[in-house]
Write a protein that binds this DNA or RNA. Structure first.
Length: 890
RNA sequence: GCGAGGGUAGCCGAGCCAGGUCAAAGGCGGCGGGCUUAAGACCCGCUCCCGUAGGGGUUCCUGGGUUCGAAUCCCAGCCCUCGCACCA
């Protein structure tokens, strides 16, 4: 092949990419029509518009875009939308730092980022773009809020917040700085130590859905295990029981325990400082009151074993004993019921407390005979034994297994089997400006009253810089009338957590312009769930749990028929540099902007997708990026060399038969790998095919038709990952229309292809070995001989035989006729243990003939392939099925 | 502490789920050769050890086990990463 100077064969990514971006635009390639039945819904987690893309974004969108483009070429209707998660603190901070308003700043950022996305030619359906900070969007947050309120999914509860006494405002966790002397942190503005204050806040009752959120995870096979596990941890399901204890105060106090089997060993009872009964005792007991005050206002954490005896007693329902009641800080108010019976012998914290307060430690469980521990080795006075076992010191229940005991004791002690979760209700109140106003009015007479639906959206007042919440300062905006009684009232000044915005945006994409409802229910029922969701692992719990919760609530309200929003989830790995996360603060970054400008978007995408599996972290390296760039230029050069007639074509001969099969094989491999999101493997197949076509042209005069078909296949397989370059190639090849909308190649690989390929690879490898080991400088002629028929026959027979294989084989006259050689071969077969599939002899011969050009080319020697029964005797003797005999002459 | 994922040749990274054509893809780096006035780009090959005919040896964190056969399955241990964690 004689290529002219490479300079004429290189393309300018900038020019090529913008050209095809315009062409896609004009052809409206990425728009999903409303009337399609059930498009493949491919979704990348929408970004917070910080203004600058980083490599994490690029990787995320490279993945969804590649998959979306692949599915489109497969003939699917595809929905691949993009939007902006545009409420949030950074805008407010920017507004406070410079003299801008959050809205203007946010919109500028969106413009910037969208420009960068467009520069990268990402195939989003921009007609469905949505922006959560627009009233057209957030009015539906407000609408949902009121609907949820009606349905009892919204509640007011108290929550502990960060309060700055100097600024007299609530602070978000992000605005609290850590300080060595103040465990609760200090104010970011005035450095005043933060106080924790209990305040009434709005909550979504996520706990109502805790069981379903937990249990459904088992069936969600399209999600990675680690994310499901993280959600299980987050929800924290605990199977246990609650049992009432009578106190000498006259109260009956419920405890929650997962170890009801140990109840006979309860030697004291403990209440959380915040527990109602503890508070009541404190009213008449100075010592208790002082303790509660101390733990509440401690500047440093109190010792874990701290606690105070109340002077009261609780009756252990198992033993009838009176055990002392303590108030102890290690008992947490929001875990279980905030009260527990303590079994020092079988719980580490109870044990530590008992030792510090000199309380009896009574063993009631000992290791079962099959346990790791020998009962004699367990000394509960020294350390708690926390495993299950057999009951002791438990009266009539001695010898019972822990699990059985738990079941029986629930009934025996009048308890309830209960499931506790560590999942809390979702506090959505934020004392911030840049979020969705909570659509409620507080009336001195009527209390909290929802803003009437027809008055939605409640829009934000103009932004002012203030120490606290700007909504609080907007007096005019705040004052309104009560929708119920018409009297003067004040608007709620809290806004919603921005996770509310992202909990349903995937539904809004279905009908982004709809003005009468948050989304079109019929269409959502057809289009949901999202077929493939892709984003960072950092959203494993919050966003992905809230979205699941929202979807279930909406289903229960009849708004959509769907209980899980995301069918398949892929969490992409990080893009690192020098082994560390990219970070602009340390300068350890590669910025997408300048990179794309220099190398083009395709190079970036190709490198990212070929470097590693999408879910794994990978290192960005200069060399790797360069190699992707070189590859694209290289393919471009090859295609142009062909179309400009620099590659002389002919009939290709037997080589052509080889190459056409490999073209199909490449397409088949790539298809399989795209289905599994293994772009790196798919690309491998493309790279191999390009290399093969190059060798084809180099070795002989290729048949134009198949050579071109090969280039066309390369182009198509490359199209999802390097879409601009692929369009340019498609155009160069003189194809009509756009490769973005072309049909994906369909192939059925001939049976036995893999075996044939292996035969070729192994034979080549053997010849290399021989040449190398025998020190053959320049081979003149290579003879390759397929084994005689009878060996194939013997081999097939051997596969079916058991027992005395040699004997049975030699009993077969067709085999026996070959005497000594047959006996040797039969012994080999018998010893093999496993016999792989092989091609029939004629097919081995044709396969080798087709591949012989590779040998000629590699060794620069004449290659002669001998069929099954036409080889010289010495060669045939060495040959076995799958392993031809080889002779090399110098 | 509980839970999840992982440890593969100089580096990165496939393979492991469905055990066997696996001394283990590919990329990067390195070495040799071709093309070229030269460089770059491109092309060909080599890159665990020994070996003058396709052989042998030792490998996929360590140690056991299952199997005719283990990078792949099982058990134990070591190390790494991540998530949850004063969760009764």
């Amino acid at each position: 092949m004689s290529e002219s100077s490479p300079e004429t064969r290189r393309f300018d990514p900038g020019a090529v990419e913008s050209k095809w971006q315009r062409a896609w635009d004009e052809a409206d390639v990425f728009h999903a029509e409303n009337d399609v039945e059930d498009p493949t819904y491919v979704l990348a987690m929408f970004p917070y518009p910080s203004g600058e893309m980083h490599m994490g974004h690029v990787r995320n969108y490279a993945i969804t875009d590649a998959y979306a483009r692949y599915r489109r070429m497969q003939g699917d209707a595809v929905l691949h939308p993009m939007g902006w998660d545009s409420f949030g603190l950074p805008a407010e901070n920017a507004a406070n730092e410079r003299d801008v308003d959050p809205r203007g700043w946010t919109m500028d950022c969106i413009t910037n980022m969208k420009e960068q996305m467009e520069l990268m030619g990402l195939g989003f359906d921009w007609e469905r773009e949505l922006t959560t900070c627009e009233p057209e969007y957030f009015r539906w947050n407000q609408w949902f809020f009121e609907q949820f309120y009606e349905a009892g999914v919204v509640e007011r509860q108290t929550a502990e917040l960060n309060w700055c006494p100097d600024c007299e405002t609530v602070l978000a966790d992000e605005n609290v700085n850590t300080h060595p002397e103040h465990p609760d942190g200090i104010c970011w503005r005035c450095d005043t130590p933060i106080e924790n204050r209990e305040m009434d806040q709005w909550f979504f009752t996520t706990t109502d859905y805790a069981d379903e959120l937990y249990d459904s995870l088992d069936g969600m096979g399209g999600w990675p295990d680690n994310v499901r596990q993280m959600q299980r941890n987050w929800i924290g399901k605990q199977e246990g029981a609650s049992v009432p204890f009578d106190l000498s105060t006259g109260d009956s106090v419920d405890i929650f325990t997962t170890r009801l089997d140990t109840i006979h060993g309860a030697t004291f009872f403990a209440l959380a400082p915040g527990h109602e009964v503890a508070q009541r005792i404190a009213a008449d007991n100075d010592e208790v009151a002082e303790y509660i005050h101390r733990v509440d206002h401690a500047d440093e954490a109190v010792p874990e074993t701290s606690g105070v005896f109340t002077g009261e007693y609780a009756t252990n329902p198992a033993t009838g004993e009176e055990v002392p009641v303590y108030v102890a800080d290690y008992v947490l108010e929001d875990i279980g019921t905030g009260a527990l019976y303590a079994v020092p012998a079988h719980d580490e914290r109870d044990h530590a407390f008992a030792q510090a307060h000199d309380i009896e430690i009574r063993q009631v469980v000992e290791p079962a005979p099959d346990a790791d521990h020998d009962p004699g080795d367990v000394d509960v006075q020294t350390a708690a034994y926390t495993a299950d076992g057999l009951l002791v010191n438990s009266g009539e229940y001695d010898g019972l297994e822990s699990a059985r005991a738990r079941e029986r004791f629930v009934e025996r002690f009048d308890g309830d089997s209960r499931t506790a979760h560590s999942l809390r209700d979702w506090c959505i109140s934020r004392q911030r400006y840049w979020g969705t106003p909570i659509p409620f009015v507080e009336c001195p007479d009527c209390g909290y009253v929802p803003v009437p639906e027809e008055e939605l959206p409640v829009e934000l007042p103009e932004f002012v810089r203030t120490t606290g919440n700007p909504l609080d300062a907007a007096e005019e905006w705040k004052s309104t009338t009560c929708p119920d009684c018409g009297g003067p009232a004040e608007r709620e000044t809290d806004t919603m957590d921005t996770f509310v915005d992202s909990s349903w945006y995937f539904l809004r994409f279905v009908s982004p312009e709809l003005e009468t409802a948050p989304f079109d229910t019929d269409r959502a029922n057809n289009w949901m769930p999202v077929d493939q969701y892709v984003g960072g692992i950092e959203h494993a719990t919050m966003h992905l749990i809230y979205s699941r919760f929202f979807t279930k609530v909406l289903d229960d309200m009849g708004l959509v028929d769907c209980r899980e929003p995301f069918e398949n989830l892929l969490t992409q790995g990080m893009v690192r540099k020098n082994g560390e996360a990219m970070s602009s603060s340390t300068g350890n970054v590669v910025s997408p902007g300048p990179f794309v400008e220099q190398y083009g978007s395709d190079t970036g995408r190709l490198f990212m997708l070929s470097a590693a599996r999408p879910e794994k972290d990978f290192d960005w390296t200069e060399e790797g990026a360069q190699s992707s760039y070189d590859f694209l230029q290289n393919v471009y050069g090859l295609v142009n060399a062909y179309t400009e007639g620099d590659i002389e074509t002919g009939d290709g001969g037997v080589v052509d038969e080889y190459v056409t099969r490999e073209i199909d094989a490449a397409a088949a491999t790539a298809t399989e790998e795209f289905e599994r999101f293994r772009f790196n493997h798919a690309f491998q197949a493309v790279r191999d095919l390009v290399s093969l076509l190059r060798r084809y042209a180099d070795h002989t005069t290729p048949r134009a038709e198949s050579f071109e078909a090969g280039l066309e296949t390369v182009t198509k397989l490359l199209a999802p990952v390097a879409p601009h370059t692929a369009e340019e190639l498609w155009h160069t090849l003189g194809r009509e229309g756009l490769v973005a909308t072309a049909d994906w190649p369909t192939v059925d690989l001939a049976e036995g292809y893999d075996t044939a390929r292996l035969l070729v690879e192994n034979t080549r490898e053997d010849i290399r070995d021989i040449v190398d080991v025998a020190g053959i400088e320049s081979p003149e002629r290579i003879d390759v001989a397929v084994a005689p028929e009878w060996k194939y026959y013997a081999r097939e027979r051997a596969r079916e035989l058991d027992g005395n294989v040699v004997g049975q084989l030699m009993g077969d006259s067709r085999i026996q006729a070959h005497g000594e050689a047959a006996a040797d071969y039969a012994k080999n077969l018998a010893a093999a243990g496993h016999i792989d599939d092989q091609l029939p002899p004629e097919r081995e011969a044709t396969t080798l003939v087709r591949a012989s050009w590779l040998l000629e080319r590699e060794f620069d020697a004449e290659v002669v392939v001998h069929g099954p029964d036409e080889a010289p005797a010495d060669l045939a003797a060495k040959a076995t099925p799958g392993r031809p005999g080889i002779r090399i002459e110098e």
